[in-house]
């Protein structure tokens, strides 16, 4: 896929009062991709997102949106971005429609038709003329998305988009985000501290911890790197000894031995065991829970 790069971050750093908050991020996001941005609270997630949308000025580094530098061509860059930063705050004393019209007035070439269309997209037709102060959190979230989509952006930045939604709402939101990426070709940058959610909707994931990106990969790639194989052998001790000669034992349970899953070598290990007169009762390939991976990568200890 030779998709266009829509969001490019290079060497992004932020220092606040001598304290380094973001220690150099590099990322490239492509068209039609849902990108998860994962990190515990206090890892620099929110700061990064605020730098992406120009709310915070980076100490150094460049952010480009569709080739436009946020720092030097702010207006040009922001044309291509739609975003919700944290909660989708709107003016509570105006109706949903007036809010949208308000934000439309700040965008080039957005007419009433387009407003009606985004209201349609988020299925808000019924309540759109009520005051925002009467909306539920889910409705505000949807209105927030409608607002973000108003200017037909190329990049959609969503900070914790499923925060405060009920399970049904979360599922709808996920489907909606995937649909936007697949059908409209949007790049969606989603931050979350909920791994499960990221796992279900993102193509790629970056994990950030203490201001640094620990890993960037596809969800599958990230997990498979940590894939495990669980053996049940008889006799146990002899089998363990043979495995130990070939690889490292990562863990031992009740009658089980865990090793890494290394596709090219497993055949060989198996052969050795059989040659050594050991019967393999069970070979279980297991993807670790993202949680485990996450804890491992971010060094645990954080509130996840």
């Amino acid at each position: 896929m030779s998709a266009e790069v829509t969001l490019k971050i290079s060497g992004l750093k932020k220092t606040i009062r001598g304290k380094s908050i973001i220690k150099g991020l590099d990322l490239e996001l492509k068209e039609g991709e849902v990108f998860g941005f994962l990190g515990p609270n206090g890892s620099g997630k929110t700061t990064t997102i605020r730098m992406l949308v120009g709310l915070i000025k980076p100490t150094s580094g460049v952010i480009e949106i569709c080739g436009r530098n946020v720092a030097t061509e702010f207006a040009q860059a922001m044309k291509h971005i739609g975003c919700i930063v944290e909660n989708p705050e709107m003016y509570p004393y105006l109706s949903g429609w007036d809010n949208l019209r308000y934000f439309a007035a700040m965008l080039p070439d957005v007419d009433e038709k387009r407003i009606a269309k985004v209201v349609d997209m988020v299925a808000m037709q019924e309540r759109i003329h009520d005051k925002v102060s009467t909306y539920s959190l889910g409705m505000r979230q949807r209105l927030g998305i409608a607002q973000a989509l108003l200017g037909s952006p190329k990049v959609l930045i969503l900070d914790e988009p499923t925060n405060g939604l009920d399970p049904l709402g979360i599922r709808e939101m996920r489907a909606f985000i995937r649909q936007l990426a697949e059908q409209e070709g949007l790049t969606v940058f989603v931050s979350s501290h909920l791994l499960h959610e990221i796992q279900l909707m993102c193509d790629r994931v970056a994990i950030i911890s203490r201001g640094e990106i620990v890993q960037v990969d596809t969800v599958y790639g990230l997990l498979s790197r940590q894939e495990r194989l669980i053996w049940r052998l008889t006799p146990h001790e002899a089998g363990k000894a043979i495995l130990q000669e070939n690889t490292t034992i990562l863990a031992e349970g009740e009658g089980t031995i865990t090793t890494a899953y290394l596709e090219n070598e497993i055949g060989e290990w198996n052969k050795r065991l059989v040659e050594g007169g050991i019967s393999v009762l069970e070979m279980n390939r297991r993807l670790p829970a993202l949680e485990d991976l996450f804890l491992e990568l971010t060094g645990g200890g954080h509130d996840v």
Binding site: G54, M78, M90, Q147
Partner: peptide
């Protein structure tokens, strides 16, 4: 946050 993330300086 919404106000300052529009394409308006």
């Amino acid at each position: 946050k919404l106000l300052l993330t529009r394409p308006v300086s």
